[in-house]
Simulated assay, not measured.
Amino acid sequence: MSVIYLLLSLSILVAIVFFIAFIYSVKNGQYDDSYTPSVRMLFEDELVKEQPEELTKTKH
């Protein structure tokens, strides 16, 4: 039974260490996306077609 307490304590300790490491890496910008802005200009924007005024006005 004491082995279960030991393993439970160690697993909680390891989980806390990984959580602290995750928070530290997020705060230091580890997960910032530096690739997408550099290739964004390579993708064409979708053309937005404007509707003519005659179609947008309701007919009475």
Rank of each mutant, 00 (worst) to 15 (best):
P52C: 01
E46V: 14
E44S: 12
I20A: 13
I20N: 03
D32A: 10
Y24L: 12
L55F: 12
M41D: 13
D45K: 15
V26L: 09
V48L: 15
Y31R: 01
S25Q: 14
K57M: 04
T36D: 02
V39L: 06
E53Q: 04
L13Q: 03
Q51N: 05
M1W: 03
A15S: 13
L55Y: 10
S2Y: 03
V17L: 11
R40H: 07
F18D: 02
Y35L: 12
I4W: 00
T56C: 05
E46D: 13
L55W: 11
I16P: 00
A15G: 08
H60Y: 10
I16V: 15
S38E: 15
D45L: 10
S9F: 09
G29L: 04
V3D: 12
S2T: 10
D45I: 02
A15P: 01
K57P: 00
L13H: 01
T58S: 13
S34A: 06
Y35R: 04
F19I: 07
I12P: 00
L47S: 03
A15N: 05
T56W: 04
K49N: 07
D33M: 05
D45Y: 09
N28A: 02
V14G: 00
Y5N: 15
I23F: 07
Y24H: 08
V3A: 10
I4H: 00
Q30D: 04
K49S: 07
K49Q: 11
H60K: 15
K27Q: 13
I12G: 08
V14H: 04
V3M: 09
S9R: 06
H60D: 13
A21R: 07
S11P: 01
P52G: 08
Y35K: 06
E46R: 15
S2F: 07
F22N: 06
